[in-house]
Design a protein around this nucleic acid. Structure first.
Lengths: 159, 159
DNA sequence: GCAAACCTTGACGTTCACGTAAACTGCGGC
DNA sequence: GCCGCAGTTTACGTGAACGTCAAGGTTTGC
């Protein structure tokens, strides 16, 4: 869409840490365990990060803190994405419609499994949320009763 | 609703482990860190679990594996629940409407904070789910194209 | 051209959530 | 009364996800 890498400041690790809220150690650790591709380096060996790298880190962090996934699960998701990327390559390279459909089925399998995992988590959260909402409504209801009817007692409301 | 504890088999730890899928160590650990109330014991010191205890363990496990909460977060949720329980006691004991409303506000504060935490997680998951659904649909669409139009080429479909 | 600030790679320490082994006790069957 | 299995506590081990310190090399401002 835009120029490949024209005028992309290329941040060093401290700046990336500031922007993402992660620590430098954490960023290095994520690279160490393969969550980030080995970052490009300066002549002296300093890690250099592009905006895309920052976005990637932010996505990882969101998956971790917001969605509550473990690094292993995140690894799986990213792994599945790159698997799908390779599958798409094969799909584009293939010309046999039958083979193409087989490749699609494979892709669908990967996606479906990932989706099932995430949806189970969401269902559990939905149950929790419903419970909290219900309790909040009961509290609100009680509060409304107390707010409107402090003078005229319960019996008065029956008339 | 039913008899307090009439004819409740009271399982020992092995049976509970079988039924919940947790290990005995895990069950003891949960008791150790206060996720379970110190279980009642036989004369000889064996832990004895009621159906309610089993349900409690299953709930904890669901929160852990499905919702992806940490034990600390689960602890917080349960803690908040018992806090609310005590708040309800105070509510029932109070007769001053103003005080009652203050107690309700307190309760609402606790609930709202818990709810916000969980809803953040769900939003993150929703984003993920939407992404996967979209990809699945694209795959399904491609597959449908290949299924219906293998003989008549793309150009043929335009006629 | 040099000090201060920043970076690198080890390497060891830490907390969480258990696993596992050791040593001892409770209990049903013979 | 003893065997064997299931249970108990105590205690050390482990993998994940980093924190932290040490001994160096790199960049940058003046």
């Amino acid at each position: 869409m835009s120029l490949p890498a024209a005028r992309d400041p290329l941040l060093r690790i401290e700046a990336v840490a500031q922007r993402t809220g992660l620590t430098k150690r954490t960023i290095r650790y994520y690279e160490e365990i393969g969550l980030l591709a080995p970052s490009c380096r300066s002549d002296g060996g300093f890690r250099l990060f592009s905006e895309a790298d920052v976005a990637h880190l932010e996505r990882i962090n969101a998956l971790k803190v917001s969605a509550g996934l473990t690094l292993a699960e995140i690894h799986e998701l990213l792994e599945a994405e790159s698997v799908r990327e390779r599958i798409r390559e094969r799909f584009r390279a293939s010309h046999d419609p039958g083979e193409k459909r087989a490749i699609l089925a494979e892709s669908r399998g990967v996606l479906t499994r990932q989706l099932a995992l995430i949806e189970r988590k969401r269902l559990a959260l939905d149950g929790l949320i419903a419970g909290y909402r219900e309790r909040l409504e009961r509290v609100a209801h009680l509060d409304a009763e107390l707010a409107e009817g402090p003078a005229r007692k319960r019996q008065g409301a029956l008339s």
